[in-house]
Write a protein that binds this DNA or RNA. Structure first.
Length: 205
DNA sequence: AATCAGATTTCCT
DNA sequence: GGAAATCTGATTA
């Protein structure tokens, strides 16, 4: 129901990455509200993780990863796409969860407009670069506090009787995608059976 | 369906 | 100089 607190984010990155699955990412823009369910995440740790930006210590780009949890770490990849991450761990310790794929729920027309496409819903936000474009997230929002009221994540209890800590899906864990180092670590998580996870979907008639 | 070049910033060997 | 937490459109078959 409620917006996730800093306490939620200030934990081990792997735990946060798994618990973010099924939650709703919300962006309140001037043009309207966009809401989408998180279906795929990846955990990036600190010094001990060769696949992480934080592996070699603090730089101009990754400094947000070392700060307090609950902030947005947004960076440009390959010169032209933005990736959206949620900062985790205690202040001073590096860690972030990359949001890799979403299931569009509200503001779908606006997302299509932002993406400048009108294809199937499964291809609107099924990749880290695609979802930032769909939600209107850019590098200028790097460091934004996710406990604020413009960009945040909330739990959506679809069945209140089952309690807040229940899950109506299974989590699959695999190696991370798009990196060369640390691919053996099982830090990618996604909702089993979701048609919205990032992957090349065969074109069918 | 599979492969590949191009876009183009930040950081490293 | 060259790789990198990506995506698109063209080409090949």
């Amino acid at each position: 129901m409620g917006k996730l607190s800093r306490k939620f984010y200030s934990r081990k990155t792997g735990i946060v990455a798994q618990e973010l699955l099924g939650k709703a990412l919300v962006h309140k823009t001037a043009e309207g509200i966009i809401l989408a369910k998180i279906v795929e995440t990846e955990a990036y740790l600190g010094q001990e993780d060769p696949g992480s930006h934080a592996y070699r210590g603090i730089t101009q780009r990754n400094r947000i990863m070392f700060g307090p949890a609950g902030k947005a770490y947004i960076y440009l990849v390959y010169g032209n796409h933005y990736c959206f991450n949620v900062v985790t761990e205690k202040d001073g310790a590096a860690g972030a969860v990359l949001i890799r794929a979403l299931e569009p729920k509200e503001g779908i027309q606006l997302m299509k407009k932002n993406r400048r496409i009108d294809g199937p819903l499964t291809r609107l936000t099924n990749g880290p670069g695609k979802l930032t474009q769909a939600l209107g997230i850019t590098g200028s929002m790097n460091g934004v506090d996710l406990t604020g009221n413009k960009l945040f994540i909330m739990s959506q209890s679809s069945s209140p009787e089952k309690g807040r800590h229940s899950r109506d899906f299974s989590i699959i864990s695999t190696g991370r995608i798009g990196i060369k180092k640390g691919t053996n670590l099982p830090y990618r998580y996604y909702i089993e059976g979701s048609r919205f996870v990032s992957q090349t979907i065969p074109i069918r008639k």
